[in-house]
Design a binder for these strands. Structure first.
Lengths: 357, 357
DNA sequence: CTGTTAGCGCGTTCAA
DNA sequence: TTGAACGCGCTAACAG
């Protein structure tokens, strides 16, 4: 009734467990006859190695843990998707752990990963967690993606500041002057960098600033958008801290009878898949999200394999690219689909696949 | 340099490993003094139990594996999100494995899960995989969600047929007659059930049918939508096999200068988050995706805990609910955001959270 | 080339 | 109440 173990196979094949192991792992010298005997026993017993036991003995789990605050929205799911693609390619598994509201929870999650994973990718935006991570995990390779340019530690950050500057400069170049910013939540590092970029670019152009705080959600974008639309000094452009808020704002503006981009131009950040599906298509700063996720995973695996080699403590910077769509420029070609979005390397062919949804 | 083990803690606390274990697991009688000594040693050494080793000894991993064909699109990511919420609540981890193009790969993935998980949720649409699953996994509890009403095995299926009938009847009731269907890919069970529902409802109403095959992707929906828009006998309504294709078709129709719903009414399936963000809002059949994912996980965990109890082999049916939005009925209130979408139980408060994206 | 044996880190009997 | 010893299933030395 119970699953067969390596010992069962050995008995049935009339060899030692060591031989079975050799055959299955491909390591060590084995006679063709023994190999055959083993293989026969294996599929007679439907034997499948117990990866948990193997992990204990090799101290390699072939699994990467991903700690993130949330799985809500397209940003994180795209990221996970990219990581998953990379993991598969490298023979790794992915164990995700999300919904960590505070640093406490996040570090508990990290702790519970010991003995379960070979490395960790941490996206928790909590500063503390980043520090806790290294101490708690105890020599577990960690790749930080929490937005803080954590120099001296392997990490990947988006150039949020630079991206924001690009956004504002684009709006200015297309004739906008009253440019408002819907920021992400206070305390979020990404949000603060984007805000700083906005402020800097506006100051450089000698323009007055308007900042309203959102929460990186579509609902908050909608709320703030409605509020801005109702102001007497209505802005003629809005730079939202991310695409979800931009989409929310777009709908609010349209509900208020305003036209995008004629009355108000709109720019988001991230280039999530939705960005090109809304009407008008949303101008945004493209992060190749899935690709970033994939390369993050690959880098971590490299880190795991290197185990103690000349430390890779670089802080890789991802530079977002401005993608102009009709939400900020009526002249932008309003390609509707699968047009301006390049197939990223983390994508698989889907046109005729067997994917169910 | 290396992480401390239970033995290190025992030595430092000057007790046996058994006592340390008792203190940490909370099982067995322990003196207050020993407990204190142990705890001191624990945080002096920053000790964290090795969950892999614990799993081997207890033969419980506290981990659930999820096998799915793809992570692309909002359907699966919502599902995963719901599962993750449930997992956290129950103290379980989630290990995801996707991108299985064929049954071969899928079963390999399942096999590699042995010793790594306590149970499996399988969403692979490959018929074979479903059967292989039970044989390969060897007494590993499995919950099937692959669309086939696999009676006699624990499973959850969506009433695709019934949902499709609802969609068609709604379109007929609002005066449409030339109703076309963009189906999902052949061989996909969900797609075929929806197609069957469409055909049946149309036959019952004595209406001629038009079916074009898509691939459940937005790109394929766009392609088919453009093709339908160009036909001389243009349909006055389209029922798409899922929301992503419906969105693609909507954009294609609009690109062709047609108005939705005046010229062509549109109905999708799934009610992914995007459905209420496009303009006009998309009429669809709501599956509470995250909730479904969450309850799936909870049920599997119950199955794991039951281990051999009176078998739960029920085939739970999720009945989709028609949500009418402007894409099929101009009179439908065009609420823009966070309006008609109820907060599912798998949701967390986000309005003012610290989620970074 | 093969078999024996010692761990991997922890939970858990069973005596004491 | 505590500790010593065994086993979880497997890999990797080391003999043979």
């Amino acid at each position: 009734m119970k699953a067969a173990t390596i010992r069962d196979v050995a008995d049935r094949a009339d060899v030692s467990v060591a031989s079975v192991s050799r055959v299955l792992t491909g390591a060590g010298p084995v006679t063709e006859t023994t190999r055959k005997k083993v293989m026969e026993a294996v599929d007679a017993l439907q034997y499948v190695p117990h990866s948990g036991a193997r992990s204990l003995s090799t101290s390699k789990t072939q699994t990467i843990g991903v700690i993130l605050p949330d799985l809500y929205g397209e940003y994180f799911s795209e990221l996970i998707r990219g990581m998953d693609v990379g993991a598969r390619a490298l023979g790794y598994h992915l164990i995700v752990s999300s919904s960590h509201d505070d640093a406490e929870e996040a570090s508990a999650a990290i702790r519970s990963m010991r003995g379960r994973v070979d490395g960790l990718i941490v996206l928790s935006p909590h500063l503390d967690a980043a520090n806790l991570a290294t101490s708690l995990a105890g020599r577990l390779p960690i790749l930080l993606m929490n937005g803080g340019a954590d120099a001296g530690r392997p990490s990947i950050v988006v150039d949020n500041h630079g991206g924001a500057v690009q956004a504002v400069e684009h709006l200015i170049a297309t004739g906008r002057r009253r440019i408002a910013h819907i920021s992400g939540p206070t305390g979020n590092l990404e949000a603060e960098s984007r805000l700083a970029g906005y402020l800097e670019a506006m100051a450089r152009a000698n323009l007055p600033t308007t900042v309203v705080e959102g929460a990186f959600t579509q609902a908050s974008g909608h709320q703030v958008g409605a509020e801005l639309a109702a102001r007497s000094e209505r802005p003629d452009a809005i730079f939202a801290g991310n695409d979800m808020m931009a989409v929310g704002a777009m709908l609010a503006l349209q509900d208020a009878g305003l036209s995008v981009p004629e009355d108000v131009a709109l720019v988001g950040f991230d280039d999530v898949p939705i960005a090109e599906l809304v009407r008008p298509g949303l101008t945004t700063l493209r992060i190749r999200i899935a690709d970033t996720g994939r390369s993050a995973l690959e880098r971590l695996v490299r880190l795991v394999d290197a185990a103690g080699a000349p430390a890779d403590t670089a802080c890789e910077v991802v530079r977002p690219e401005l993608v102009v769509r009709p939400s900020s420029d009526p002249a932008a070609q309003a390609r509707t689909t699968s047009g301006d979005r390049p197939r990223d390397s983390a994508s698989l062919p889907h046109l005729k696949g067997e994917n169910p949804q």
